[in-house]
Design a binder for these strands. Structure first.
Length: 571
RNA sequence: GGCCCGUUCGUCUAGGGGUUAGGACGUCAGAUUUUCAUUCUGGUAGCAGGGGUUCGAUUCCCCUACGGGCUACCA
């Protein structure tokens, strides 16, 4: 029975390395139909940061990492917050004290600091270990009655692990294989602090045992304390149920030195956090992948491939595919530098993978944009549009107009929705993020008012106005006599006017192409020049999707209006 | 400093005693196009160094170098 835990400390936001650790735990749990536990390790009361717990849970939720047992979910090993388990640890410390695996230490933090300084001045490093403990104030050196007197006097003390001397510990790590360490190189770690709280080491081992954790999957920064933990299992007599260990390689900064850390914040030019973190003390906001515009599934995909691969060339994985393919054995040994460029590429791939409708929803949610050139109002989501339309259908205020100016309620019909979807289909391949789409597609929603000087200089020859006039004349018969807002006889609210009958409400792009290209050819005009000029009129510059696609979406009336305006403005 | 872990293109990585060392991002070039992108095709670039073991090492072992982690009454 696989039981794994993600055990963050609520000392601030989770960074992407932490999220990856959570992800690997989750993938492993799901792969083996096991249980995913979220345990909050808040034994350092001094470093507790308000809001951190909520942040952690929200982050995991956004990533689609589901928790089976935790502070919010409950479970058979409750409670899941270590500060709520405080009473449990004392008895285990006592157990070690009784069987001789631990001892009381009365040296104050100040005393030890002074000793450390002294060692440093001699360019040595102090370590509370088998060598030095014989000359320090602890229950190993002090007479029994003195120890009792001190304990009863209420003086501060800690409980330390009594590390045996010159004993070879052989450990197995799923990722690293066999690791050997001699106990003589390890110090006597504090297990129980003077404030009555356990340290990470004690709480971690006790809880993993009590919660019947089968696999401890955590960052490599914990590898140096694995020998201690293994010795603790031995000291408690829990060797036969000791979990298996897997120490994940670290995520490194893209450039420079060191592992990625919370303090990197936004300094690196990309987020290090999954979602925005609002530092309440400094009032600073650190950006997260969610708010930076990353899709949650793309973010998970990026993280999964940082230090793991399934041995194939496959790079795009859904969560289900990750669960299927995941194994700890295929996690690499070496740390990986995070590459923000590739992260963007991943997001672009997900953009392409998602349906136009899905992106349109997201786009509308993020951008309250004007509905259509010449028509005031706001785009709303499909659901909202449906609701509003229903209000209009039954309400008395519906005046037969689909767009009601600056009224508080703006009905948007399916026609507008379809138009946005169509626009998305044209521009999504040009965008890495949904937030890029507006800059790629704004001209579908508002007419340009300025025109790119370089293009004018290059292509706006004296005969251009008359050429454009001819093209306008060509399109005029296609233009409806009235715009939908002033629907004439036979055109009622909700109707689509004839010119909007196809392709999201217009002539097909191909039909414009036939028409205009035919005109250009028959009049011996310069194709490149005319096309670029048309684009300039419609978009204001020389970028964007195909001119005929743009025309098809704008409709003849709007195309003519934009041409007129450009001629008027540029002259 | 001590202890531990690691090292394949700039980056993420596959591979593994005999391979033209494979893929992806980036980058460069070409193609397509009415523009900008996208897309497609192609190019660029790598086994840290030195010793072994071996008929043969990038692959196994050792050393060195480099990188990383830990070295708190923090996790």
């Amino acid at each position: 029975m696989v039981r794994v835990r993600f055990a963050p400390s609520p000392t601030g936001p989770l960074h992407m390395g932490g999220v990856r650790t959570a992800l690997f735990n989750y993938l492993f749990a799901r792969k083996h139909q096991g249980t995913m536990i979220l345990r909050i390790e808040d034994t350092d009361q001094g470093r507790f940061v308000p809001g951190a717990e909520e942040y952690i849970m929200e982050s995991l939720e956004w990533c689609g990492i589901q928790i089976d047992e935790g502070i919010r979910e409950g479970g058979k090993s409750e409670p899941y917050r270590q500060s709520d388990r405080k009473e449990i640890y004392k008895q285990y410390a006592d157990q070690l004290l009784e069987n001789g695996w631990a001892y009381y230490s009365f040296d104050s933090a100040e005393d030890l600091d002074a000793i450390r300084k002294d060692y440093e001045s001699r360019k040595e490093t102090f370590s509370y270990d088998t060598q030095t403990r014989t000359s320090l104030r602890n229950s190993l050196t002090l007479p029994a009655d003195e120890v009792n007197r001190l304990l009863n006097s209420g003086v501060n003390y800690v409980v330390r692990f009594r590390m045996p001397e010159n004993h070879e510990i052989v450990m197995q790590d799923i990722i690293r294989g066999e690791v050997r360490v001699n106990t003589s190189t390890i110090d006597d770690k504090v297990l129980f602090k003077s404030d009555g709280m356990p340290t990470y080491h004690l709480a971690n081992v006790v809880d993993d045992h009590l919660m019947e954790i089968s696999h401890v999957i955590r960052g490599e920064e914990w590898l140096p304390s694995l020998p201690l933990h293994v010795m603790l299992y031995k000291a408690f007599g829990w060797t036969d149920t000791m979990p298996q260990f897997a120490h994940l390689p670290l995520i490194l900064k893209p450039s420079g030195n060191g592992k990625l850390s919370k303090r990197d914040g936004d300094k690196l030019g990309f987020p290090v956090f999954p979602i925005n973190w609002n530092n309440q003390e400094t009032n600073e906001i650190y950006s997260g992948y969610r708010e930076a515009g990353y899709f949650n599934d793309a973010f998970v995909n990026i993280l999964a491939l940082l230090g793991w691969n399934d041995g194939t060339d496959k790079e795009i994985y859904s969560m289900d595919e990750l669960i299927q393919a995941f194994s700890l054995e295929r996690v690499g040994k070496s740390g990986s530098r995070f590459d923000p460029e590739k992260a963007k590429w991943f997001n672009h791939q997900y953009m392409l993978l998602k349906s136009d409708e899905e992106i349109a929803e997201e786009f509308i949610k993020n951008h309250k944009v004007p509905a259509f050139a010449g028509m005031t109002g706001a785009l709303v989501t499909q659901a909202e549009a449906g609701a509003r339309l229903a209000v209009n259908e039954s309400g008395t205020k519906a005046k037969g107009s689909r767009f009601r100016g600056n009224d508080s309620v703006t009905a948007v019909t399916g026609f507008e929705w379809e138009r946005v979807v169509k626009i998305i289909s044209l521009v999504k391949e040009r965008a890495e993020f949904v937030k890029d789409i507006w800059s790629q597609a704004w001209f579908f929603f508002e007419a340009p008012t300025t025109y790119d000087e370089t293009t004018i200089k290059k292509r706006w020859t004296p005969e251009i106005p008359s050429i454009l006039k001819d093209i306008s004349a060509l399109l005029l018969p296609l233009s409806p006599p009235v715009i939908p807002a002033k629907a004439g006889p036979g055109l009622r609210r909700g109707d689509k006017c004839s010119c909007h009958s196809r392709e999201g409400g217009n002539l097909l792009a191909a039909e414009y192409e036939t028409l205009i290209k035919g005109h250009i050819t028959s009049h011996n005009l310069n194709m490149g020049n005319v096309m670029n000029i048309l684009r300039l009129c419609l978009v204001g510059s020389s970028v964007g999707p195909g001119v005929f696609d743009i025309m098809a979406l704008l409709g003849p009336a709007e195309v003519i209006a934009r041409i007129d305006r450009a001629v008027q403005t540029i002259g």
